[in-house]
């Protein structure tokens, strides 16, 4: 099926989802092209996490359709979804690391359990070491998640999410509850992952700074840090901002359009954090 750059890697077509009460996703439609970065803002309970879980096939919409890599996953059986999910990385809100496993076992988990990947234990260990080095946590391989700080757990979560080299990575509030310095470190890792692996990124956040860094900065391998993107690079980054309100998509556009928006709800996400 189509994976070329002209076809959306992810598409929501008039998706509505409710849990018995008012809809948590209300007629949501959008498309994400390969290599694009999407930043999703919204107040608590606006449906941001639900949107990511629906994209991953963990939740099924009541109406509408969800297409991932060109496949309609709306009513796809759970076992068939495993193949699709093996090409999507997901960082859950608190990391969702398996607390009964070591950090190494956590990162090896998708490599050993994804049916379409099935690495040998040696290959999985080597890859785990590589991705943990990527997030600068290679020294924690034998530790348990409970021995790590909140920021370190998120970085391990990122390592686990990208261990299988997925072309699409979803981040659910990667900086929530972290101090500004740790939050910036996490965003730097996400930018690094995006620029080094050239992956499509969807990031849910309520911090405007996170979106701003994603849209205007690039990973600089020479300095090992972020640097401002040039105008040409910024255009290539193709960062789109979305704002959700009570399950509805109330804004979709560029950073300039977001900053120019006169909608009081939308502008709250810009004003509050700058």
């Amino acid at each position: 099926m189509p994976d070329d750059s002209s076809q959306p890697i992810l598409r929501f077509d008039d998706v509505t989802l409710s849990f018995g009460g008012p809809p948590v996703l209300n007629h949501i439609s959008f498309s994400v092209l390969p290599g694009e970065t999407r930043i999703i803002f919204g107040a608590a309970g606006s449906g941001k996490t639900i949107l990511l879980k629906t994209a991953l096939g963990l939740l099924r919409p009541d109406t509408g359709r969800v297409y991932v890599f060109g496949h309609d996953i709306t009513r796809m059986p759970e076992r068939d979804l495993f193949d699709i999910r093996s090409r999507i990385g997901m960082l859950f809100q608190e990391g969702a690391l398996f607390d009964s496993l070591t950090i190494e076992e956590n990162v090896c988990y998708p490599l050993l359990n994804q049916k379409s990947i099935r690495s040998t234990p040696e290959q999985a260990r080597a890859r785990a070491e590589e991705v943990l080095r990527f997030v600068e946590l290679e020294h924690t391989m034998d530790k348990r998640p409970s021995e790590l700080s909140g920021g370190m757990r998120r970085r391990v979560g990122i390592a686990r999410a990208v261990a299988t080299r997925p072309p699409l990575v979803l981040y659910d509030s990667p900086t929530a509850g972290l101090d500004p310095i740790t939050a910036n470190t996490i965003i730097a890792v996400i930018v690094k992952q995006r620029d080094v692996s050239n992956v499509t990124t969807l990031m849910v956040t309520h911090r405007y700074q996170d979106g701003n860094l994603m849209a205007n900065y690039r990973w600089d391998a020479a300095t090992g840090g972020l640097r401002p993107a040039t105008n040409g690079e910024r255009a290539r980054l193709r960062t789109t901002f979305m704002v959700l309100r009570e399950g509805r998509l109330v804004f979709e556009g560029t950073q300039q359009e977001l900053e120019a928006s006169e909608d009081p709800y939308v502008s709250r996400f810009v004003v509050r954090s700058t």
Partner: peptide, 14 residues
């Protein structure tokens, strides 16, 4: 409640 079940499904395990 810590989303480990969701993570398990996301990582290819029933």
């Amino acid at each position: 409640v810590t989303e480990q079940i969701d993570a398990m499904r996301a990582l290819g395990t029933d």
